[in-house]
Nucleic acid binder design. Structure first.
Lengths: 135, 135
DNA sequence: AAGTTATTGATAACGAATCTCATTACCAGC
DNA sequence: GCTGGTAATGAGATTCGTTATCAATAACTT
């Protein structure tokens, strides 16, 4: 049975408090910096659980690091992510879904799924010349 | 200046000999199994170079492993990949390119790029109940 | 309150990828 | 064909993200 611990809540709240994709490591050090005594392994476990339960979205950075973000809507969606700061916007991709299914079927592939992410530099990062915090 | 070594050629030929996405590690052990004495680090270096030069495409597996495949066409394209065996088909995605650019612009993001991959189970893998070789 | 057992967290272990550096061998110029 | 310089190699060490281990803890049920 699933138990309700302050650690899991802390991770959930930390995720809910930002619109950015963050790594388990950075989330852990943020919490520790705030005085929490949460362990790194627990953060990894909590994030994995949240992702399974659909409360968090995850994607892989260019460097192969797993990044997580609070999932605000129930239905399937994709993201437009700032390469510089990690800020992300949830986006619809109805046309792309349809295209993916069609392409799979045309080539005799079954059980299609897809990875669709759009990256760019957000307006805020584009205007100031700040150093990359993500990457 | 760039030199032409039998090691680089071996990696290039091994990639050209398959239509599948393979990892550096598996490509290395394949070559070793054939009697080659090529080193693992060299395989990593050769694959990275091929990817930079546009002779190979790369993507990240679910497990964060980098996979490579010979690139047969010069222009930008995407892939339909078999989750089971790694076999891949190059696909056009003109509509997707346009969609990605539009979505980025609508949200004030500049310098857009995108990651678009379609996964599925190819006809061959769907018919026989073989164990997954990729994953 | 007591017992059960999921959860935690420090640390070890793992695996992919990169770095180090002495050795090798490609190749341009003679 | 030699030869010198220097890019490339490869065994092993190292880095770094992530997962496994396992004794201690704490969240639920009764």
């Amino acid at each position: 049975m699933k138990r309700n611990t302050w650690q899991r809540n802390a991770v959930r709240e930390a995720l809910d408090g930002t619109d950015r994709f963050v790594s388990a490591q950075s989330l852990h050090s943020t919490l520790r910096a705030k005085g929490s005594s949460i362990g790194l392994a627990t953060v990894y476990r909590a994030l994995a659980d949240l992702a399974i339960e659909g409360e968090a979205d995850s994607l892989q950075s260019d460097q192969g690091e797993s990044l997580y973000r609070a999932c605000t809507r129930g239905q399937h969606h994709h993201h437009l992510i700032c390469r510089n700061c990690g800020r992300a916007v949830e986006i619809e991709a109805t046309e792309v879904e349809a295209w993916a299914h069609r392409v799979a079927a045309e080539n005799g592939f079954v059980a299609p799924s897809h990875v669709v992410d759009v990256f760019g530099v957000c307006g805020e990062c584009a205007s100031d010349g700040s150093a990359p915090s993500l990457e």
